[in-house]
Every structure is written in C-alpha cells, then in structure tokens.
Amino acid sequence: MECSLEAIFDQALVETNRLRTLRSEAPPADFLLKIAAEELSERLAVVERQFEAAAEIHGYTGLAAQALLATGKIGKVTRIETHAAFAAPGDHFTIAPLEQLPLEPASINLAVSPLSLHLTNDTPGMFVQIRRALKPDGLFLAAVPGADTLQELRDVLLQTEVEMTGGASPRVIPFADIRDIGALLQRAGFALPVTDKETYTVRYDSLFELMRDLRAMGMANPLAARSRKPPGRAFFLRAAELYAQRYSDPDGRVRATFSIIYLSGWAPHESQQKPLKPGSAKTRLADALKSKTFD
C-alpha cells in the first residue's frame, strides 16, 4: 500500500506495528494506556449522567472500556478496532480502519478515544465523525499524546543524524499542541470544550530501554516520510551517548517525557449552558480565578 503525498502516517505500517505488539511474547508496555484509562474513567465518574450506549474507539486491548464499565455510568460499550485480534471474550466488537467510524449518526451517548487519534492523517475528520455519531448532549472523552512527548528522544536523534550524516529525516512523530486540540473540538462543532494536560516523566537505564518500550507500544516509526535506510548500530550508540549526556539524573538513569492531553466536548443540545453575551458578566475574571490584579 502506497501512501499519498499528503499522508503523515503510513497507515499500513501503523497497523503492522500495532498487531506486532499485540502478538509479541515480550511483556507489554501499556503503562500509558493504563494511566489514560484510569484518568478517563475518573472524569466520567464525576459526570452526573448515565450513558446507555458508548463506544471505545481504537483502544488497543480494551483497558479503557473496562475502566469505563467499572464506573457504573454506562450500559453497553462497543469496542471499535482495526482487527479481530484485539477483541476479548464477551466484547461487543466492530472492525474498522483507524480513520473510519462505523457508527450511524446520533447512535451513541458516549465516545471515548484512548491514545489513538495521534496516528490519524485526517484528525479533524475523525473529530467530525465522532461528533456526528453522538446523540444530542452526548459526551466525547479522549486522551491524545501532547507536543512535549518524547522531546528528549527527538532532540538526540536529530543531533545524532546531523552529526553523522549532515542531514536529518523524521524519526519521532509530531504530536499536537493543546491549543490545536481545543481548536479541533470547536471546529468539529462540540459544545463546552475542555482541554488540559498532564505530563509524566519516565526514567530508563538508557535510550535502548526507552526504544524497547516504544516498540512494545506499537510506536516504531510509522511516518510516511521516514528514511528507508537502517541507521545502524553506531548511530544508536552515539544517540544513547548524547541522551545520557543531556538528560540523565545523578544516578545515571535517563528521563523521557510523556505528555497526555485530556479533552472533552458535548454534542450540542438546547439544555446546555450558553456563553454569556460580551459585557454581561457580573464577576471579574480575576475574582473568579481568585487571583490578584495590579494596577
């Protein structure tokens, strides 16, 4: 399968990476998915609403679906995945490509996407598909890796390639800024959009252990514009040396940043709170935020 010139990700390779991870005998590196599943379920738990029909959109092993069901807030969860291998016994399961949502308009009350939207070429289109699938006053929750993710790895791989070859090719995928995610929610027509970010620092013995985890997450480089030439052992030895020089702690272990943007938005409904007209507020923003102002 060839990628179009506009494609950022080679979707065939994305699928290959995800399936290879699922079928690997190596221990899973699913700690980020567990964090996202727990965070999304906690956010759902405080919503004073029941959701009779929910969809987990490309959630890998179904950890998010399990966590959502445990809240007692939803009735049925349909898991949407790219391959039957991702299904577990008893799942309500539908197969669809990563960039397609096989749901009828206004057919679900809740859509949840845990750590998969960052691999779509048409992310705005996915937001629109999710918005259309929600019933009025339906809720969209998602976790999306943010722009600071793997900033250390991006830095050292770029520096290593410039140093050894005089050029550079993309080796770490681009991640969205929180402002871009908020803009996508608004553009897709979601009401009451909310975004916030959590940053997690994970420590490793070296760059090699980090890269092993990335492969175990299915995050080997899927960029359409990636170099097809294997970099070789000398490249990674130099990259590991730079990583240790720039991003190690006193005990010698190195740091890796993972940033997750959590977002929510509602399908519009007449019962929802409407924004005030400009100039009609009765409380100053500084008072509402309990902050000081200086003249």
Rank of each mutant, 00 (worst) to 15 (best):
A64N: 02
A54H: 01
S113F: 03
K135G: 02
S116A: 12
R233L: 12
F175M: 12
I95R: 01
V47Y: 04
R233D: 09
A67V: 00
A168L: 03
K274Q: 14
L192E: 10
A88P: 01
T61G: 15
Q245I: 10
Y243Q: 14
P124E: 13
L139C: 09
E2F: 12
H83Q: 13
I95S: 01
K73E: 02
P231G: 01
K277L: 14
K290G: 05
Y204S: 14
P174I: 12
A36W: 00
L157F: 14
F190K: 00
F140Y: 14
I74C: 11
D177E: 15
I8D: 03
P114V: 06
Q11D: 11
E198T: 07
A12Y: 06
A106V: 05
F93D: 02
L98Y: 03
R43E: 07
R215D: 12
G138A: 07
L5T: 14
P27C: 05
F175T: 06
R255E: 11
R79L: 01
S291R: 08
Q50S: 13
E56V: 15
E52S: 15
G279P: 13
T160M: 07
T71C: 09
L101I: 12
D91S: 05
R187W: 05
P27S: 07
L32D: 06
M1W: 07
Q186R: 08
L19V: 14
